[in-house]
């Protein structure tokens, strides 16, 4: 697939256009990536497709090879892998806090101590997630803007 970037004048509507013979999984992935960069993620719940705002996601967890997005009240499944989401959402204040979890730093209420050099992040939704000791250093750096 050829990639062309065209500069337009100020005031013109910006658009990402994908011209393809068939809407394949690859095309959907590209479209989803563009949407995620703009602040929304494609996901499913009960076989229905949804677009949810990245800012509504509290945390993302990978369980048995599947990736789930947790909002305040709902759980969605997404086709993305956790490492893909980590890369895509690092500018949206998401941080990896364990091997299988990303958390939205803006959704954390407070941080509490846990056993063995680990911490517990208490989310605004009331849920608690473990911050692995391996990722505490990265958390400190992220909070200091490093």
């Amino acid at each position: 697939m050829d990639v062309r970037i065209e500069t337009i004048g100020k005031g013109c509507e910006e658009l990402v256009l994908i011209r393809c013979c068939e809407v394949t999984e690859e095309v959907r992935e590209i479209a989803n990536f563009v949407k995620s960069r703009q602040g929304s993620l494609s996901c499913t719940m009960d076989s229905k497709r949804y677009e949810i705002a990245v800012t509504d996601v509290c945390y993302i967890e990978s369980v048995d090879g599947k990736t789930f997005l947790y909002t305040n009240e709902k759980v969605f499944e997404t086709a993305y892998r956790i490492y893909e989401l980590e890369e895509m959402l690092k500018t949206k204040h998401f941080l990896r806090i364990s091997k299988a979890m990303l958390v939205n730093l803006m959704k954390i209420q407070s941080i509490q101590p846990a056993f063995n050099g680990r911490f517990t992040a208490v989310l605004r939704s009331g849920e608690k997630v473990i911050i692995s000791r391996n990722y505490v250093k990265a958390l400190k750096a992220a909070l200091k803007g490093e």
Binding site: I111, P113, A114, L143
Partner: peptide, 12 residues
């Protein structure tokens, strides 16, 4: 750990 958690909460 509790002191460290308090500092992390302030930074957060």
């Amino acid at each position: 750990g509790s002191a460290e958690a308090k500092k992390l909460s302030r930074d957060l």
